[in-house]
Nucleic acid binder design. Structure first.
Length: 637
DNA sequence: GTGTGGTAG
DNA sequence: CGTTCTACCACAC
């Protein structure tokens, strides 16, 4: 009777509507989009010695992911194999599709997971449409995609789901609880159920619309899941693939009658390792626990045949199971504090993590390569140079934007051919440079190779000369290798020789955003942002941005504005959109001087005699006061 | 603040 | 069990 609260099912929160996109065989689709002839042919993408993915025509002929090249050629001699080791085209396509999907959401909540998955939180759009739904004519509904333009949207039938559902729609004459006309009741239980049902229906129609737009306008098909959180929407999408969508249908909680929660029956059938958030380490610990850890080490005891598969229900219903037990079972080096609580939630389909808001800049950029053998300083130097050059290029691509305001004109007498674009400005300055290697473990005396394929790393402050836009990438890279990376390498490998590296990674992290608004920047703490900006930036200029377009625009303009209203400042977009029309942000900051010597800002003490002028009101004050002062202008409350 | 580990595609 | 090239988070120091 008196179960501790933690052994009961955690509380579900089903008031959101989350759509999960997974582009079908993405790498192959990118090549198909570039060359549509490939669509009808068996196509495989190669990295090193394996097929990393292949299109469905190739799969029909027996190929699959992560297959060896030789094996693939034997299975399907006429397969077209393209090299996909350079990720640039995939990254660009991924950003383009992401920007496209994001342009539909109002909340800015659009999260990319890898190159080929996107979560959208469309709760606000769906609830908006839910509230204006005519319950007496559900089949003739209109889905509004913009708040201000009532013509922007599409017709749909709100009396049913679009696409597949889980469980599948009962084919026979339905005990369907829903009708073409929707009764409003005051019974709270019925209302909650009805509202969830409708929310999911609307979400399924929006998902179908977006899927079709993605295919028609961008040429990519996708597999989509619709539910109330990231876990469920991602998992349920897998039920019908490819080029399809699935909505997890109610009831999500056991009803007062006898109906079981569809969430539980859905999750229960999954192998423990299939649940996002439960990786191989956690899955291993969970299997050991429910199968019994001891029998592994007792010689005689073979545990009841081979029950290799442990399902979510096996863990959830294991005698005595609770979040506390899971916390104990799953703790250890590398595990997080409340892993058990998190996993206990996942086993019940509970996942309260938010869809991350679109960020203006990535948190880190890293470039790595793997090697059969890397053991001379000459080779190291050469590889570091290549990696660093790529890294600088990525930094320019992802961390700068065109300076399209009053020109930073070149007063120099002519521009050198190998200089890079100086008419750009930095959106963020990484503070830290990190070098990571993976040493190949030495062969041991007993002949067996030790299996520690671990990475080791050292980091340092990123020198500010990498931000000089006038210098060539090669110049910067060489300087960075000599002055920072080789010292880090010596720290990492004090031995003068004898190392054998299988991997080298160079990364910049700890982005200090030079962004403008607290909104498009991804909801960072503004005060912290300014504090950190003041660590590296000396002088700021505040500029009035053109305000919103005229209120008497055409329909086309309105549609564009509706679509554009939330895509203001995302780094994915910077390269596709060079104008920001209709942004709600009225201020942004332009860096005019980069401090060459950062050390003067390193101290905890802020030099109070260094004055900054506010370009809004003209006031002059010390840097530390500018923090609060600028916040004052940003936030009139 | 630095380095490691886990998870994910 | 590993394979490739990332990116992000959180813990322990």
């Amino acid at each position: 009777m008196r179960e501790p609260p933690s052994t009961r099912a955690p509380t579900r929160h089903d008031d959101r509507l989350i759509i999960h996109f997974d582009y079908d065989c993405f790498y192959a689709a990118v090549f198909e989009a570039e060359n549509p002839v490939l669509k009808s042919l068996p196509l495989a993408v190669q990295q090193k010695h394996i097929i990393v993915t292949c299109n469905y025509e190739a799969r029909r002929r027996g190929l699959h992911k992560l297959q060896l090249i030789n094996e693939a050629r034997m299975t399907c001699p006429d397969v077209i194999i393209v090299l996909g080791e350079d990720l640039t085209r995939f990254r660009n396509a991924s950003k383009e599709l992401y920007a496209f999907l994001k342009s539909f959401v109002w909340s800015q909540k659009a999260e990319r997971l890898g190159f080929d998955e996107v979560f959208l939180d469309v709760t606000d759009i769906v609830d908006y449409n839910l509230d204006i739904l005519n319950h007496n004519s559900l089949p003739d509904s209109f889905f509004h995609l913009g708040r201000s333009d009532p013509t922007l949207g599409f017709s749909y039938d709100a009396s049913c789901f679009a696409g597949n559902t889980f469980p599948a729609a009962s084919d026979e004459n339905e005990p369907q609880p829903m009708f073409t006309s929707f009764p409003k009741t005051d019974s709270s239980e019925a209302t909650d159920f009805d509202r969830l049902e409708l929310r999911l229906r609307l979400g399924s129609h929006l998902a179908q619309y977006l899927r079709h737009q993605l295919e028609e306008q961008k040429g990519y098909t996708s597999t989509v899941g619709i539910s109330t959180n990231k876990l469920l929407s991602k998992l349920v999408g897998n039920v019908n693939k490819p080029t399809n969508q699935t909505t997890l249908r109610p009831p999500y909680s056991p009803t007062s009658g006898n109906a079981k929660s569809n969430v539980l029956s859905f999750i229960d059938d999954h192998d423990i390792g299939q649940i996002p958030g439960i990786g191989c380490k956690l899955a291993h610990k969970l299997r050991n626990y429910v199968l019994g850890r001891e029998p592994q080490f007792d010689e005689g005891l073979v545990w009841g045949g081979t029950k290799e598969n442990v399902k979510a229900r096996d863990v959830r219903l294991f005698p005595g199971m609770s979040s506390e037990v899971l916390n104990e079972v799953l703790k250890g080096p590398g595990s997080h504090k409340d892993t058990g609580v998190k996993v206990w939630g996942l086993l019940h389909g509970v996942d309260d993590t938010e869809v991350a808001k679109a960020r203006s800049v990535p948190r880190q950029i890293s470039i790595e390569d793997s090697y059969l053998r890397l053991d001379t300083l000459t080779q190291i130097h050469k590889e570091l140079l290549m990696l660093t050059s790529s890294l600088i290029r990525r930094m320019h691509l992802d961390l700068t934007e065109p300076e399209d305001d009053g020109n930073v004109f070149d007063e120099d007498e002519g521009i050198k051919a190998d200089t890079i674009d100086t008419s750009r400005r930095w959106l963020a300055h990484p503070r830290v440079l990190r070098l990571t290697t993976r040493p190949r473990p030495p062969v041991q005396a007993d002949g067996t190779r030790s299996r520690s394929f671990k990475r080791i790393s050292r980091s340092t402050t990123l020198p500010s000369f990498v931000f000089r836009l006038a210098d060539s990438i090669e110049t910067i890279a060489e300087k960075l290798v000599n002055e920072a990376l080789l010292p880090l390498f010596r720290k990492l490998h004090p031995e003068t020789s004898g190392w054998d590296l299988s991997l080298v990674n160079v990364a910049v992290t700890d982005m200090i955003e030079t962004a403008s608004d607290g909104k498009g920047g991804g909801g960072r703490d503004i005060g912290r942002m300014f504090r950190r900006q003041n660590e590296v930036l000396k002088e700021w200029k505040v500029i009035e941005q053109d305000m919103a377009p005229s209120p008497h625009g055409t329909d086309e303009q309105h549609k564009a504005e509706d679509r554009m209203e939330m895509i203001s400042n995302d780094y994915e977009n910077q390269h596709q959109l060079n104008t920001h029309k209709g942004s709600e942000d009225d201020l942004f900051y332009t860096q005019t001087t980069t401090v060459e010597d950062e050390s003067q800002w390193d101290s905890d003490e802020v030099d109070s005699h260094i004055g900054n002028a506010c370009n809004i009101c003209g006031a002059t004050m010390p840097s530390f006061a500018m923090i609060a002062h600028e916040r004052f202008h940003l936030n009139p409350d």
